[in-house]
Structure formats: structure tokens, C-alpha cells
Design a protein around this nucleic acid. Structure first.
Length: 532
RNA sequence: GCCCCCGUCGUCCAGCGGUCUAGGAUCCCACCCUUUCAAGGUGGUGACGCCGGUUCGAAUCCGGUCGGGGGUACCA
């Protein structure tokens, strides 16, 4: 997607997409990334891609690479973010949180020194037991961790320290009062602080957790609008609390300088806007999973969906320009996009509609372009049998280029080409059992094939001549045209379903066509009903 | 359990107090076209979760109810 330029850099929005690299990129995530990009482009802002790999036990290098590849494939390249060589582009990196540990550690230390946090020496097991007890009714309410009831006493603290017992660091959240944030898609949302647990911002092994790392980076990288999934709505209050802490007395600026990270732009404030996107669910209204077909977006690629179709369809999952248009170019989406017009209810991912969109877009492509796009589905690159070389020879490319106009309007996905191509790219036809049973068993089938071979033998090999020759047959044989066309179709392509017959014959050439008619004759005869 | 969010055709959206006998897309069905399959054309089935209230008037505002989802992690 192209980047409109703007004249007032200071006021330009900075948005980010920051997945945790475990597993594959999901359509829900991609939709969130797309909305970030659309908003950034709409307002001439910047799109930042950040890798949130603070949890070493979950994040993998493979996943990160896969996500980068997926983002590029679908056309959501980033202005700032990681590069393939391990480096990064953009002035506020690095963009992998695993490379920003020193920053988080120093921020945590200063926060602790200021009294904004407290140490929790409980083990995960102890916490789990406590929670279970609370839920079971042992406590006087829900399992909310608050300093007032959770902070260790001075003596305990001294003892644990003496024992060298590890501790996590929790952020002190207000014990009373409430907080209201204004969400671009949801309006005002209010929480009581008493209901919000004090989050662990640093694990007992010293590493930062999402609440700290995500918030520190958003502020350090000047993110102005946070657009993400609704599953992160409940996390907003503690982030807003942290903004104040990080900006107070230039705490973060000092730390940035101290640990040698890029300084913030002086015009930056804390993130000022939130947009929590509704979830993307399956047609059964359940969370998206492998049960719903494609999980990763590269799976869509393998199935022959065009990235531009995905962008268009995904954009419409929760948003509409408002004037009824649905088939939108990138430019149209950018021009009309508005986070405030995003819907509030979960959207079901409808593969049928996506597929219909895809078919339309395929039909809009030029023959040359579709030829190029279809090649990877014929040479084995995107799965399927390798019918041609990689790269294709000139002759193979010519055949495909000749086939494309015949199949273009029959395709919904690029991999649909695999259904029609074998008859044109293989030496021998493979007879489809059902087609033989349906067509060759009809009376007159062998005779039609014979007659076709005869008239096609010495006709000029042009579309018009081929058609004229075959059209003359029904009269001669005293049958309908379908009785001629279908047997010939099966004989020549192996199937009762194929591209238009005359064009197919023309593409195949006289020699191949005649050879196939001849080879089919015994098959057709054998299929004839034997009269007792 | 507690907190938060959501509720228009099967699905995605439009609708933002009257012009709604609720519109478009997709799906499904029928017909037309037709050498198969498609594509294309035409037409059709199909929804404001429910109950109250506000109002001359509600899909649109308010309350409740029911239903769905998210969170409740030293995951993000």
C-alpha cells in the first residue's frame, strides 16, 4: 500500500501492530494489522511493526519469520520494524522486545525505587492455589490482587530476601475510584480500580511482561493510537496508569538515555486514542481455529486467494464505507477508512463471500497477469502436482497463457487452474471415471468421436473452421449437438467438465486432438451398453 | 463467581426518531442464456432476540431480561 505524504510530521499518527511470535498469523490479527495500516495511510502517519517476544518460552524465530513473510505477502509492509537480516528499519528500534530487555529492567528498577511497585515472593503454585480458593468462595470476592491485601509485611520481605527467594514485581494500582477511557469504536468504558488486579510487570527471572514492555514501547516509540483486538480491552486501565508514571519527571526519557536507546521525539505525548476491534469468529460464532479451515494466512495463499482480495474482504469485516460499495481498491479503502465507523459486534469469517470476491478479482486481471499468478500453482511452488518446470519453459508458458482465457471465468481461486490444466499440459488424458460412465455409455458416442476425427482431420486449424466442422455433424448424424460435443469433450480432455470445446481443441492442436480422439474410441466402444 | 463488551436476513454490512411494506453483498432457490462447467442477466426466500418505558411516532433513545463474546496468567 502506498504512502501519502503529509506536511506536519508532528501531528501525524503513529500506529503499531505487535504480535507475539508464537504460531502463525491469524486472519483476526491480520485484520487488526490492516486497520492499523489503513488508519496510518489515511492520515499520512507511520505504521510500526513490533515483535513482542518477551516470553522466551513461547516465542520462536520460525514464527517471527513466518509473520514477517505473511505481512509482506498480504501487502502490509511496515515503515518501522524488523528486517530480515536481524537488523531493523526506523529510528526508534530495536523493534524486537527481546532486544530491549535492558530498557525494561531499568524502567522497572526506577518504578520500584519510586514506590510504584512492590515485590511478590509467592510462587506460581501458591498463586494458583490462592486463586482457586478465592473462586471456591474461600475469599470474600473475586480473585483480585491488590497491594492492600497482597503486599508482604516488612518482616516477611526481610526473611524472603535473606533466603534469596525470587520475587516478581507488581504494579500498584489504585485501591479505590474508577477510570474511564474513551474508545474510538466503543465510546466510554469505565472500570472500578478495586476490580483490577495489580499486574506483574517483571517476572521473578527479571524479564519484563507484556504490561510493562508493551506500554514502555508504545510510549518510547511515540505510538499515538492503539488499535488492537477487543481481547485486550481489559488491559487498558493499567496501561493508562503506566503512561503517567513513565512520563512523570521524564522517567522514561532518562532511562532511554541511560541505557542508550533512541530518545523520544519531544512532541510525543502518551497514546491518546484507543480502538478496540471486535473479534473475528468462525461461522459457528466460536473462536477461529483449525476447525474453520484455514488457520494461517499463508494457507490462504496456498489456496489461491489474492492478497488484494483478502485485504478488501478483511477490511469489510467490521467496517464499511457507508455508501454500499464493497469491492474496494486500496486507495478507496484508505480514502474512506475511519476507526470511528468500525462496528462493535464480533464478525464471522465467511469463506464463501471471500471466495466470491476472489473470483471477481481474478476475472478482472489481464491475461498476462493471471498467467504469471497462476504459474506457481502449476509448477509445484504452491502445492499441487508439478505439471510444468520451474521456471516454465517458453512452450509451457505459451500453453498456460493460451489456457488462461479459457479458464479465467471458471476460477474462484488460483489453485482452480489445477483442475483444468492437466489435459493441456500432459501428454495423455486421464479419463474421469464418472464422465466416461455418463457420456461414453450413451448410444452414438463412438460414432460421434469417429465423425469428429474424420472432419477434423483436414479442416483448417482455426477456431471458426473447427466450430463449423463440428456444427455440421448433428445434421449428418441426426442427433443433437450435445450428443456430439460431450463425447468429443471427454475424448479430448478426459472429463465432461472442461473449458469451451472449440477453444480447447484449438489450443491442443490438430495432432494432439486427433490422437486423443483415436485413443478414446476403444474406450468409448467398451463403455457402450451390451445388448443381450 | 466477578468485571467489561456485544445483539438488524444463515453470514458481512447500511440504517443514526418519521422517507423502513428495513437496503446492499454473500449464500440458497427459480428462470433466461448455453457445447459441459462456469460467467453473465432477471426474479425470489430470508432479519430489527424478548419485555417494558419515553414519544404523536422507535430497528433507531432509556431500563430490564435473555443470549453471545472477552477478561479474570510471572501469555499476549
Amino acid at each position: 500500500m502506498t504512502i501519502p505524504t503529509a506536511s506536519d510530521p508532528g501531528a501525524l499518527p503513529r500506529l503499531r501492530f505487535c504480535p507475539a511470535p508464537s504460531g502463525w498469523l491469524h486472519v483476526g490479527s491480520v485484520r487488526a494489522a490492516l486497520y492499523n495500516v489503513l488508519h496510518a495511510r489515511r492520515h499520512g502517519g507511520t505504521f510500526v511493526f513490533r515483535i513482542e517476544d518477551t516470553d522466551a518460552t513461547r516465542a520462536t524465530e520460525d514464527s517471527m519469520r513466518s509473520m514477517m513473510e505473511a505481512m509482506r505477502w498480504i501487502g502490509l509492509d511496515w515503515d518501522e520494524g524488523p528486517e530480515d537480516d536481524g537488523g531493523s528499519r526506523g529510528a526508534y528500534g530495536p523493534y524486537r522486545q527481546s532486544q530491549r530487555g535492558a530498557l525494561y529492567a531499568e524502567v522497572a528498577a526506577r518504578l520500584e525505587a519510586s514506590g510504584a511497585t512492590y515485590r511478590d515472593h509467592r510462587t506460581s503454585e501458591e498463586l494458583a492455589a490462592w486463586r482457586e480458593d478465592q473462586r471456591a468462595g474461600g475469599g470474600d470476592g473475586p480473585p483480585v490482587v491488590k497491594a492492600s491485601t497482597f503486599e508482604h509485611s516488612e518482616v516477611e520481605l526481610a526473611r524472603f530476601a535473606a533466603e534469596g527467594r525470587p520475587a516478581s514485581l507488581r504494579l500498584r494500582t489504585p485501591e479505590t475510584g474508577s477510570i474511564t477511557v474513551t474508545d474510538l469504536v466503543r465510546g466510554e468504558v469505565t472500570w472500578d480500580w478495586a476490580q483490577i488486579s495489580d499486574p506483574v510487570i517483571q517476572r521473578s527471572d527479571g524479564s519484563a511482561t507484556y504490561p510493562l514492555a508493551n506500554t514502555v514501547d508504545d510510549v518510547a516509540q511515540g505510538i499515538s493510537i492503539i488499535c488492537r483486538g477487543e481481547d485486550l480491552l481489559s488491559v487498558t486501565p493499567r496501561q493508562v496508569l503506566l503512561y503517567g508514571l513513565l512520563l512523570a519527571d521524564g522517567l522514561l526519557d532518562d532511562v532511554l538515555a541511560a541505557v542508550g536507546f533512541p530518545a523520544r521525539d519531544p512532541s510525543w505525548a502518551a497514546p491518546s486514542g484507543f480502538a478496540h476491534l471486535p473479534m473475528v469468529v468462525g461461522m459457528d460464532r466460536k473462536k477461529l481455529s483449525k476447525r474453520h479451515g484455514s488457520v494461517s494466512i499463508q494457507e490462504f495463499r496456498r489456496q489461491g486467494y489474492l492478497p488484494e482480495t483478502l485485504r478488501n474482504y478483511l477490511a469489510l469485516l467490521g467496517w464499511a464505507p457507508g455508501d454500499g460499495r464493497e469491492r474496494l481498491s486500496d486507495e478507496e479503502m484508505i480514502a474512506g477508512f475511519d476507526l470511528a465507523k468500525v462496528g462493535r459486534s464480533a464478525a464471522a469469517f465467511d469463506v464463501d463471500k471471500l471466495t466470491a470476491f476472489n473470483g471477481e478479482r481474478i476475472r478482472e486481471l489481464s491475461v498476462d497477469e493471471l498467467t504469471d499468478r497462476v504459474l506457481p500453482y502449476l509448477d509445484g511452488t504452491e502445492g499441487g502436482e508439478a505439471l510444468i518446470d520451474r521456471p516454465a519453459t517458453d512452450a509451457q508458458r505459451a500453453v498456460v497463457r493460451g489456457l488462461v482465457p479459457l479458464v479465467q471465468e471458471r476460477m474462484q481461486r488460483l489453485d482452480d487452474v489445477q483442475r483444468y490444466a492437466p489435459a493441456f499440459l500432459r501428454d495423455e488424458v486421464a479419463f474421469d471415471e464418472d464422465s466416461v460412465a455418463k457420456v461414453f455409455t450413451k448410444t452414438g458416442a463412438p460414432e460421434a468421436i469417429e465423425a469428429a476425427a474424420r472432419v477434423l482431420g483436414d479442416v483448417e486449424w482455426t477456431l471458426d473452421a473447427i466450430e463449423a466442422a463440428l456444427r455440421a455433424l448433428p445434421d449428418e448424424l441426426g442427433i443433437g449437438f450435445g450428443k456430439v460435443a460431450q463425447p468429443v469433450r471427454v475424448a479430448v480432455t478426459g472429463s465432461a467438465v472442461s473449458p469451451p470445446l472449440f477453444e480447447s481443441l484449438e489450443l491442443l492442436g490438430r495432432e494432439t486432438s486427433l490422437a486423443r480422439l483415436e485413443a478414446a474410441l476403444p474406450v468409448a466402444r467398451a463403455a457402450q451398453p451390451t445388448d443381450e
